[in-house]
Amino acid sequence: MAAQNLQSVPAELSPEEEAEAQAHFDRVMAEDSRIEPKDWMPAAYRKTLLRQISQHAHSEIIGMQPEANWISRAPSLKRKAILMAKVQDEAGHGLYLYSAAETLGQTRDKMMDDLIAGKARYSSIFNYPALTWADMGAIGWLVDGAAICNQVPLCRASYGPYGRAMVRICKEESFHQRQGFEILLELSNGTPEQKQMAQDAVNRWYAPALMMFGPPDDDSPNSKQSMAWNIKRFSNDELRSRFVGMMVEQVRVLGLTLPDDQVRFNEDTRKWEHGPLDWHEFQEVLAGRGPCNAQRLERRRAAHDDGAWVREAAAAYAAKQSKKTKEYAA
């Protein structure tokens, strides 16, 4: 793996050295500057980042499935091409993110094993089924829209490889959201059945999309530390509120409605508010009891297992070639 050269290996430090390293780290945080793979970092910072980046990578990879479900049935060739490109981008995002996580000292193989074993999490949104073509629109508009709200601030994350990966990912996500919006717009202006299909998809994806920002602030114990480390810039509720404000504007242009009659702008707090969300459902899906959890993991496991002989062949071939090259050189 190319990323191996970049991996930061925690070295044994004397107490004085460690104090100095910690002081450097604290200075970087205070200056809102960047930590790079070879810099010293607190073990908890490394662990938090590794968890967050690998979860993010897993979400991209599992997130390919609900959309791949419609590639073969896309109703026009143009839509098929756009959808294929989008799902392919997601594989690319997964690759950048696994590479970023590898700089923290974990191999992609290990992360993949953890995912398949059900030990690692991914965004709970992808455990909902993509039932109609309009879901391709709602996923792009709402799910990628929420992802952008979450991810744009991550471009400034204090860990260099993560922030840089996010810059590129955000550019592509913005294209993804636009294509979702365009699908819904077309449906909304289509036949009554198409418009109904669009509204139904928005109704189903709205609440799960709002829950993508994570639990309410008073129930999100890790947020504070992540903000102190300049990984997270805004609280879950803050981002959720901003997102609702954006959607309120855009849903009007779509000619559809949000399935929430309690959305309002609070003049006192200057924030957008929304109706209650079913956090019990969120916890259930996170715990593995969502509509598609078993299916999603099984698909990933099957692809991984079915492809094992291919990866073994590639490794064996590379080893033979490298041996040949060495023999030739000698």
Partner: peptide
Amino acid sequence: LGHWISRAPELEEDVALGNIAL
């Protein structure tokens, strides 16, 4: 080829086969 996307032996092949399909 589109069927391979999300089912390939490695992520690199999800990308490659997806690209060829496109």
